[in-house]
Design a protein around this nucleic acid. Structure first.
Lengths: 192, 192
DNA sequence: TGACGATACGGAACGCCGTTCCGTTTTACA
DNA sequence: TGTAAAACGGAACGGCGTTCCGTATCGTCA
Protein backbone atom coordinates (compact mmCIF):
# COMPACT_ATOMS: atom_id res chain seq x y z
CA UNK A 1 0.00 0.00 0.00
CA UNK A 2 1.46 3.30 -1.07
CA UNK A 3 0.76 6.79 0.22
CA UNK A 4 -0.90 7.56 -3.11
CA UNK A 5 -3.90 5.34 -2.57
CA UNK A 6 -4.26 6.14 1.11
CA UNK A 7 -7.16 8.43 0.27
CA UNK A 8 -8.78 5.87 -2.04
CA UNK A 9 -10.50 6.98 -5.24
CA UNK A 10 -11.86 10.07 -3.54
CA UNK A 11 -8.81 12.22 -4.26
CA UNK A 12 -8.47 11.80 -8.02
CA UNK A 13 -12.06 12.68 -8.98
CA UNK A 14 -12.69 15.90 -10.85
CA UNK A 15 -16.44 16.36 -10.67
CA UNK A 16 -17.67 17.71 -7.39
CA UNK A 17 -20.82 15.53 -7.22
CA UNK A 18 -18.58 12.48 -7.37
CA UNK A 19 -16.53 13.57 -4.39
CA UNK A 20 -19.62 14.64 -2.46
CA UNK A 21 -21.42 11.36 -3.10
CA UNK A 22 -18.42 9.28 -2.17
CA UNK A 23 -18.15 11.09 1.15
CA UNK A 24 -21.90 10.96 1.81
CA UNK A 25 -21.93 7.28 0.97
CA UNK A 26 -19.16 6.44 3.43
CA UNK A 27 -20.95 8.31 6.20
CA UNK A 28 -24.32 6.77 5.35
CA UNK A 29 -22.80 3.30 5.27
CA UNK A 30 -21.11 3.80 8.63
CA UNK A 31 -24.41 5.00 10.10
CA UNK A 32 -26.28 2.06 8.58
CA UNK A 33 -23.70 -0.36 9.97
CA UNK A 34 -24.02 0.88 13.54
CA UNK A 35 -27.83 0.95 13.20
CA UNK A 36 -28.40 -2.45 11.55
CA UNK A 37 -25.04 -4.22 11.63
CA UNK A 38 -22.64 -4.89 8.77
CA UNK A 39 -25.28 -6.74 6.80
CA UNK A 40 -27.36 -3.60 6.27
CA UNK A 41 -28.83 -3.82 2.73
CA UNK A 42 -27.23 -1.73 0.01
CA UNK A 43 -30.65 -0.14 -0.66
CA UNK A 44 -30.78 1.15 2.91
CA UNK A 45 -27.35 2.68 2.59
CA UNK A 46 -28.24 4.30 -0.73
CA UNK A 47 -31.43 5.78 0.66
CA UNK A 48 -29.67 7.04 3.78
CA UNK A 49 -27.23 8.79 1.46
CA UNK A 50 -30.08 10.11 -0.70
CA UNK A 51 -28.73 8.43 -3.85
CA UNK A 52 -29.75 5.49 -6.03
CA UNK A 53 -28.22 2.05 -5.73
CA UNK A 54 -26.53 2.58 -9.09
CA UNK A 55 -24.43 5.33 -7.55
CA UNK A 56 -23.34 3.06 -4.75
CA UNK A 57 -22.17 0.47 -7.24
CA UNK A 58 -20.33 2.96 -9.38
CA UNK A 59 -18.23 4.01 -6.40
CA UNK A 60 -17.90 0.58 -4.83
CA UNK A 61 -18.08 -2.27 -7.37
CA UNK A 62 -19.27 -4.73 -4.75
CA UNK A 63 -20.88 -4.59 -1.36
CA UNK A 64 -17.71 -5.91 0.20
CA UNK A 65 -15.71 -3.04 -1.27
CA UNK A 66 -17.99 -0.59 0.46
CA UNK A 67 -17.55 -2.32 3.81
CA UNK A 68 -13.79 -2.25 3.40
CA UNK A 69 -13.85 1.41 2.41
CA UNK A 70 -15.85 2.27 5.52
CA UNK A 71 -13.32 0.39 7.59
CA UNK A 72 -10.39 2.29 6.11
CA UNK A 73 -12.28 5.57 6.38
CA UNK A 74 -12.81 4.98 10.07
CA UNK A 75 -9.20 4.02 10.63
CA UNK A 76 -8.22 7.30 8.99
CA UNK A 77 -10.74 9.35 10.95
CA UNK A 78 -9.55 7.79 14.17
CA UNK A 79 -5.91 8.39 13.32
CA UNK A 80 -6.50 12.00 12.39
CA UNK A 81 -8.58 12.67 15.49
CA UNK A 82 -5.65 11.91 17.81
CA UNK A 83 -3.53 15.03 17.21
CA UNK A 84 -6.65 17.19 16.90
CA UNK A 85 -7.98 16.08 20.28
CA UNK A 86 -4.55 16.51 21.81
CA UNK A 87 -4.34 20.10 20.60
CA UNK A 88 -7.91 20.95 21.58
CA UNK A 89 -8.44 19.15 24.89
CA UNK A 90 -7.82 20.71 28.30
CA UNK A 91 -5.34 17.96 29.23
CA UNK A 92 -3.77 15.03 27.42
CA UNK A 93 -5.70 12.60 29.57
CA UNK A 94 -9.01 14.12 28.54
CA UNK A 95 -7.85 13.85 24.94
CA UNK A 96 -7.06 10.19 25.56
CA UNK A 97 -10.51 9.63 27.04
CA UNK A 98 -12.18 11.17 24.03
CA UNK A 99 -10.01 9.29 21.62
CA UNK A 100 -10.83 5.99 23.34
CA UNK A 101 -14.49 6.78 22.84
CA UNK A 102 -14.02 7.18 19.09
CA UNK A 103 -11.97 4.01 19.07
CA UNK A 104 -14.82 2.04 20.65
CA UNK A 105 -17.24 3.19 17.95
CA UNK A 106 -14.82 1.99 15.38
CA UNK A 107 -14.14 -1.36 17.03
CA UNK A 108 -17.79 -2.34 17.13
CA UNK A 109 -17.87 -1.95 13.36
CA UNK A 110 -14.58 -3.78 13.07
CA UNK A 111 -15.79 -6.81 14.99
CA UNK A 112 -18.96 -7.07 12.96
CA UNK A 113 -16.80 -6.82 9.89
CA UNK A 114 -14.43 -9.52 11.05
CA UNK A 115 -17.40 -11.80 11.66
CA UNK A 116 -18.77 -11.07 8.20
CA UNK A 117 -15.48 -11.75 6.47
CA UNK A 118 -14.65 -15.32 7.36
CA UNK A 119 -15.62 -16.56 3.93
CA UNK A 120 -13.76 -14.20 1.63
CA UNK A 121 -10.77 -13.31 3.78
CA UNK A 122 -9.12 -11.60 0.83
CA UNK A 123 -7.72 -8.30 1.90
CA UNK A 124 -8.75 -8.62 5.50
CA UNK A 125 -5.26 -9.29 6.79
CA UNK A 126 -3.99 -6.33 4.81
CA UNK A 127 -6.68 -4.24 6.44
CA UNK A 128 -5.60 -5.36 9.87
CA UNK A 129 -2.02 -4.38 9.08
CA UNK A 130 -3.26 -0.99 7.94
CA UNK A 131 -5.19 -0.72 11.17
CA UNK A 132 -2.11 -1.30 13.32
CA UNK A 133 0.09 0.83 11.10
CA UNK A 134 -2.12 3.87 11.36
CA UNK A 135 -3.45 3.67 14.89
CA UNK A 136 -0.60 2.40 17.02
CA UNK A 137 1.47 5.59 16.58
CA UNK A 138 -1.54 7.76 17.33
CA UNK A 139 -2.36 5.90 20.49
CA UNK A 140 1.29 6.04 21.51
CA UNK A 141 1.36 9.77 20.95
CA UNK A 142 -1.62 10.26 23.22
CA UNK A 143 -0.14 8.03 25.88
CA UNK A 144 3.22 9.78 25.72
CA UNK A 145 1.63 13.19 26.04
CA UNK A 146 -0.37 12.08 29.05
CA UNK A 147 2.74 10.58 30.61
CA UNK A 148 4.72 13.73 29.99
CA UNK A 149 1.96 15.67 31.73
CA UNK A 150 2.28 13.37 34.74
CA UNK A 151 -1.21 12.02 34.23
CA UNK A 152 -0.36 8.31 34.00
CA UNK A 153 0.44 5.89 36.79
CA UNK A 154 0.84 2.74 34.69
CA UNK A 155 3.52 2.00 32.14
CA UNK A 156 1.09 0.36 29.68
CA UNK A 157 2.25 0.33 26.07
CA UNK A 158 0.06 1.60 23.26
CA UNK A 159 -0.31 -1.92 21.96
CA UNK A 160 -1.34 -3.28 25.33
CA UNK A 161 -3.93 -0.56 25.70
CA UNK A 162 -5.35 -1.07 22.24
CA UNK A 163 -5.43 -4.81 22.78
CA UNK A 164 -7.22 -4.30 26.10
CA UNK A 165 -9.80 -2.01 24.58
CA UNK A 166 -10.25 -4.36 21.70
CA UNK A 167 -10.86 -7.31 24.00
CA UNK A 168 -13.34 -5.35 26.07
CA UNK A 169 -15.32 -4.77 22.89
CA UNK A 170 -15.53 -8.43 21.87
CA UNK A 171 -19.12 -9.60 21.69
CA UNK A 172 -20.40 -6.09 22.32
CA UNK A 173 -22.50 -6.09 19.17
CA UNK A 174 -24.54 -9.15 20.17
CA UNK A 175 -25.19 -8.57 23.85
CA UNK A 176 -27.31 -5.54 24.78
CA UNK A 177 -26.59 -6.10 28.48
CA UNK A 178 -22.87 -5.71 27.96
CA UNK A 179 -21.65 -2.12 27.92
CA UNK A 180 -18.20 -2.14 26.39
CA UNK A 181 -17.95 1.64 26.29
CA UNK A 182 -18.39 1.91 30.04
CA UNK A 183 -15.73 -0.67 30.74
CA UNK A 184 -13.33 1.03 28.37
CA UNK A 185 -13.96 4.34 30.09
CA UNK A 186 -13.20 2.74 33.44
CA UNK A 187 -10.02 1.25 32.07
CA UNK A 188 -8.83 4.56 30.73
CA UNK A 189 -9.77 6.29 33.96
CA UNK A 190 -7.76 3.67 35.80
CA UNK A 191 -4.61 4.75 33.98
CA UNK A 192 -4.62 8.01 35.81
CA UNK B 1 -32.36 -33.66 26.08
CA UNK B 2 -34.17 -36.97 26.77
CA UNK B 3 -33.83 -40.34 25.10
CA UNK B 4 -37.29 -39.81 23.64
CA UNK B 5 -36.28 -37.08 21.24
CA UNK B 6 -32.97 -38.62 20.33
CA UNK B 7 -34.52 -39.83 17.09
CA UNK B 8 -36.16 -36.49 16.35
CA UNK B 9 -39.61 -36.32 14.69
CA UNK B 10 -38.79 -39.33 12.53
CA UNK B 11 -39.99 -41.89 15.04
CA UNK B 12 -43.49 -40.58 15.80
CA UNK B 13 -44.74 -40.33 12.20
CA UNK B 14 -47.47 -42.67 11.06
CA UNK B 15 -47.49 -42.29 7.30
CA UNK B 16 -44.70 -44.10 5.52
CA UNK B 17 -44.07 -41.38 2.92
CA UNK B 18 -43.35 -38.99 5.77
CA UNK B 19 -40.67 -41.23 7.23
CA UNK B 20 -39.23 -42.00 3.81
CA UNK B 21 -39.03 -38.32 2.84
CA UNK B 22 -37.46 -37.31 6.14
CA UNK B 23 -34.74 -39.89 5.67
CA UNK B 24 -34.20 -39.04 2.00
CA UNK B 25 -34.03 -35.36 2.87
CA UNK B 26 -31.34 -35.84 5.50
CA UNK B 27 -29.24 -37.86 3.07
CA UNK B 28 -29.76 -35.39 0.24
CA UNK B 29 -28.88 -32.47 2.49
CA UNK B 30 -25.71 -34.17 3.70
CA UNK B 31 -24.71 -34.87 0.09
CA UNK B 32 -25.48 -31.28 -0.93
CA UNK B 33 -23.42 -29.96 1.98
CA UNK B 34 -20.32 -31.94 1.07
CA UNK B 35 -20.79 -31.01 -2.60
CA UNK B 36 -21.53 -27.26 -2.26
CA UNK B 37 -20.88 -26.43 1.37
CA UNK B 38 -23.37 -25.68 4.13
CA UNK B 39 -24.90 -22.82 2.16
CA UNK B 40 -26.29 -25.14 -0.50
CA UNK B 41 -29.70 -23.72 -1.55
CA UNK B 42 -32.82 -25.38 -0.20
CA UNK B 43 -34.00 -25.88 -3.79
CA UNK B 44 -30.89 -27.94 -4.55
CA UNK B 45 -31.47 -30.12 -1.52
CA UNK B 46 -35.13 -30.60 -2.42
CA UNK B 47 -34.29 -31.57 -5.98
CA UNK B 48 -31.55 -33.96 -4.87
CA UNK B 49 -34.14 -35.61 -2.65
CA UNK B 50 -36.68 -35.62 -5.50
CA UNK B 51 -39.23 -33.61 -3.52
CA UNK B 52 -40.61 -30.07 -3.63
CA UNK B 53 -39.35 -27.29 -1.40
CA UNK B 54 -42.66 -27.35 0.44
CA UNK B 55 -41.84 -30.83 1.70
CA UNK B 56 -38.50 -29.65 2.99
CA UNK B 57 -40.16 -26.88 4.96
CA UNK B 58 -42.83 -29.15 6.41
CA UNK B 59 -40.16 -31.38 7.91
CA UNK B 60 -37.74 -28.60 8.83
CA UNK B 61 -39.44 -25.26 9.53
CA UNK B 62 -36.32 -23.32 8.67
CA UNK B 63 -33.15 -23.89 6.72
CA UNK B 64 -31.19 -23.81 9.95
CA UNK B 65 -33.28 -26.64 11.41
CA UNK B 66 -32.33 -28.81 8.48
CA UNK B 67 -28.64 -28.10 8.97
CA UNK B 68 -28.93 -28.97 12.65
CA UNK B 69 -30.84 -32.16 11.87
CA UNK B 70 -28.11 -33.25 9.46
CA UNK B 71 -25.55 -32.61 12.14
CA UNK B 72 -27.39 -34.72 14.69
CA UNK B 73 -28.02 -37.42 12.13
CA UNK B 74 -24.32 -37.65 11.39
CA UNK B 75 -23.43 -37.74 15.08
CA UNK B 76 -25.82 -40.67 15.46
CA UNK B 77 -24.51 -42.48 12.40
CA UNK B 78 -20.96 -42.04 13.63
CA UNK B 79 -21.85 -43.26 17.12
CA UNK B 80 -23.67 -46.31 15.83
CA UNK B 81 -20.88 -47.21 13.44
CA UNK B 82 -18.38 -47.74 16.27
CA UNK B 83 -19.69 -51.01 17.71
CA UNK B 84 -20.60 -52.26 14.23
CA UNK B 85 -17.07 -51.73 12.93
CA UNK B 86 -15.64 -53.30 16.05
CA UNK B 87 -17.72 -56.43 15.57
CA UNK B 88 -17.02 -56.63 11.85
CA UNK B 89 -13.39 -55.62 11.50
CA UNK B 90 -10.47 -58.05 11.47
CA UNK B 91 -8.81 -56.27 14.40
CA UNK B 92 -9.80 -53.42 16.72
CA UNK B 93 -7.14 -51.21 15.19
CA UNK B 94 -8.58 -51.63 11.73
CA UNK B 95 -11.97 -50.77 13.19
CA UNK B 96 -10.45 -47.65 14.70
CA UNK B 97 -8.94 -46.69 11.36
CA UNK B 98 -12.27 -47.04 9.61
CA UNK B 99 -14.10 -45.18 12.30
CA UNK B 100 -11.62 -42.29 12.11
CA UNK B 101 -12.38 -42.08 8.41
CA UNK B 102 -16.10 -41.66 9.06
CA UNK B 103 -15.28 -39.14 11.73
CA UNK B 104 -13.34 -37.00 9.26
CA UNK B 105 -16.29 -36.87 6.87
CA UNK B 106 -18.42 -35.69 9.69
CA UNK B 107 -15.97 -33.06 10.94
CA UNK B 108 -15.74 -31.33 7.59
CA UNK B 109 -19.50 -30.78 7.74
CA UNK B 110 -19.24 -29.75 11.37
CA UNK B 111 -16.67 -27.07 10.67
CA UNK B 112 -18.67 -25.63 7.82
CA UNK B 113 -21.64 -25.60 10.12
CA UNK B 114 -19.77 -23.84 12.88
CA UNK B 115 -18.73 -21.20 10.39
CA UNK B 116 -22.31 -20.76 9.17
CA UNK B 117 -23.66 -20.34 12.69
CA UNK B 118 -21.92 -17.20 13.79
CA UNK B 119 -25.09 -15.14 13.93
CA UNK B 120 -27.70 -17.32 15.54
CA UNK B 121 -25.67 -19.40 17.97
CA UNK B 122 -28.87 -20.68 19.55
CA UNK B 123 -28.66 -24.39 20.01
CA UNK B 124 -25.13 -24.71 18.76
CA UNK B 125 -23.64 -25.21 22.21
CA UNK B 126 -26.29 -27.79 22.94
CA UNK B 127 -25.30 -29.53 19.73
CA UNK B 128 -21.67 -29.55 20.74
CA UNK B 129 -22.60 -31.11 24.08
CA UNK B 130 -24.59 -33.74 22.22
CA UNK B 131 -21.60 -34.33 20.02
CA UNK B 132 -19.29 -35.02 22.97
CA UNK B 133 -21.93 -37.00 24.82
CA UNK B 134 -22.50 -39.41 21.97
CA UNK B 135 -19.07 -39.78 20.45
CA UNK B 136 -16.62 -39.74 23.34
CA UNK B 137 -17.81 -43.13 24.69
CA UNK B 138 -17.68 -44.66 21.23
CA UNK B 139 -14.18 -43.46 20.62
CA UNK B 140 -13.16 -44.68 24.07
CA UNK B 141 -14.63 -48.10 23.37
CA UNK B 142 -12.61 -48.42 20.18
CA UNK B 143 -9.45 -47.29 21.92
CA UNK B 144 -9.97 -49.67 24.83
CA UNK B 145 -10.56 -52.59 22.52
CA UNK B 146 -7.39 -51.79 20.58
CA UNK B 147 -5.47 -51.45 23.84
CA UNK B 148 -6.81 -54.75 25.11
CA UNK B 149 -5.66 -56.39 21.88
CA UNK B 150 -2.17 -55.00 22.49
CA UNK B 151 -2.40 -52.80 19.40
CA UNK B 152 -1.66 -49.44 21.04
CA UNK B 153 1.61 -48.01 22.17
CA UNK B 154 0.39 -44.62 23.40
CA UNK B 155 -1.84 -43.86 26.34
CA UNK B 156 -3.84 -41.22 24.51
CA UNK B 157 -7.30 -40.58 25.91
CA UNK B 158 -10.37 -40.60 23.69
CA UNK B 159 -10.78 -36.89 24.19
CA UNK B 160 -7.19 -36.18 23.21
CA UNK B 161 -7.56 -38.24 20.08
CA UNK B 162 -10.83 -36.62 19.06
CA UNK B 163 -9.38 -33.20 19.75
CA UNK B 164 -6.34 -34.05 17.66
CA UNK B 165 -8.42 -35.27 14.75
CA UNK B 166 -10.65 -32.26 15.04
CA UNK B 167 -7.71 -29.88 14.91
CA UNK B 168 -6.23 -31.66 11.92
CA UNK B 169 -9.50 -31.01 10.10
CA UNK B 170 -9.60 -27.28 10.78
CA UNK B 171 -9.54 -25.32 7.56
CA UNK B 172 -9.81 -28.48 5.51
CA UNK B 173 -12.95 -27.30 3.70
CA UNK B 174 -11.26 -24.19 2.28
CA UNK B 175 -7.85 -25.45 1.24
CA UNK B 176 -7.74 -28.04 -1.54
CA UNK B 177 -4.00 -28.53 -0.99
CA UNK B 178 -4.51 -29.64 2.59
CA UNK B 179 -5.39 -33.30 3.00
CA UNK B 180 -6.81 -33.70 6.47
CA UNK B 181 -7.82 -37.30 5.92
CA UNK B 182 -4.27 -38.33 5.14
CA UNK B 183 -2.91 -36.67 8.24
CA UNK B 184 -5.58 -38.25 10.39
CA UNK B 185 -4.74 -41.65 8.95
CA UNK B 186 -1.07 -41.09 9.79
CA UNK B 187 -1.98 -40.08 13.31
CA UNK B 188 -4.07 -43.19 13.86
CA UNK B 189 -1.37 -45.34 12.32
CA UNK B 190 1.08 -43.76 14.72
CA UNK B 191 -0.90 -45.06 17.67
CA UNK B 192 0.08 -48.56 16.82
C1' DT C 1 -62.96 -53.39 -0.93
C1' DG C 2 -64.16 -48.90 -1.77
C1' DA C 3 -65.05 -44.33 -0.26
C1' DC C 4 -63.77 -40.58 2.66
C1' DG C 5 -61.40 -37.42 5.73
C1' DA C 6 -56.93 -36.18 7.15
C1' DT C 7 -52.46 -35.26 5.96
C1' DA C 8 -48.49 -34.55 3.11
C1' DC C 9 -46.96 -33.21 -1.42
C1' DG C 10 -45.23 -30.04 -5.28
C1' DG C 11 -44.06 -25.96 -6.98
C1' DA C 12 -45.79 -21.26 -8.12
C1' DA C 13 -45.57 -17.04 -5.76
C1' DC C 14 -43.76 -13.55 -2.39
C1' DG C 15 -40.47 -10.41 -0.54
C1' DC C 16 -35.69 -9.46 0.11
C1' DC C 17 -31.11 -9.62 -1.34
C1' DG C 18 -26.85 -8.11 -4.35
C1' DT C 19 -25.99 -6.59 -8.80
C1' DT C 20 -26.70 -4.82 -13.73
C1' DC C 21 -28.49 -1.84 -17.22
C1' DC C 22 -29.92 2.12 -19.42
C1' DG C 23 -32.60 6.43 -20.20
C1' DT C 24 -32.03 10.91 -17.91
C1' DT C 25 -29.58 14.59 -15.62
C1' DT C 26 -25.64 17.04 -14.21
C1' DT C 27 -21.09 18.61 -14.94
C1' DA C 28 -16.99 20.80 -16.96
C1' DC C 29 -15.08 22.96 -20.58
C1' DA C 30 -14.68 25.27 -25.44
C1' DT D 1 -23.97 28.89 -23.70
C1' DG D 2 -23.89 24.63 -26.23
C1' DT D 3 -22.29 20.14 -26.13
C1' DA D 4 -19.93 15.83 -25.19
C1' DA D 5 -18.73 13.09 -21.47
C1' DA D 6 -19.56 11.34 -17.18
C1' DA D 7 -22.45 10.27 -13.20
C1' DC D 8 -27.10 9.73 -11.62
C1' DG D 9 -31.53 7.15 -10.25
C1' DG D 10 -34.11 3.38 -10.03
C1' DA D 11 -36.45 -0.35 -12.71
C1' DA D 12 -35.19 -4.91 -13.78
C1' DC D 13 -32.79 -9.45 -13.15
C1' DG D 14 -31.61 -13.74 -11.07
C1' DG D 15 -31.17 -16.16 -6.72
C1' DC D 16 -32.21 -16.74 -2.09
C1' DG D 17 -35.35 -18.40 2.07
C1' DT D 18 -39.97 -18.96 3.01
C1' DT D 19 -45.23 -19.27 2.44
C1' DC D 20 -49.44 -20.78 0.42
C1' DC D 21 -52.72 -23.58 -1.59
C1' DG D 22 -54.70 -26.75 -5.04
C1' DT D 23 -53.62 -31.63 -5.76
C1' DA D 24 -52.26 -36.32 -4.67
C1' DT D 25 -51.58 -39.85 -1.37
C1' DC D 26 -52.39 -42.29 2.80
C1' DG D 27 -54.72 -44.89 6.65
C1' DT D 28 -59.13 -46.11 8.26
C1' DC D 29 -63.70 -47.66 8.74
C1' DA D 30 -68.21 -49.16 6.69
Amino acid sequence: MTDDDRQGDTAGSKRKDVRRNQQTLLEAAAAAFVASGVEAPVRDIASRAGVGVGTVYRHFPTRSDLVIAVYRHQVDACAEAGPVLLAAGPTPHVALERWADLFVDFLVTKHGLAAAMQADNTGFEALHAYFLDRLLPVCAELLDAAAAAGELRSGLTAYQLMRGIGNLCIGAENDPDYDARRLVALLVAGLR
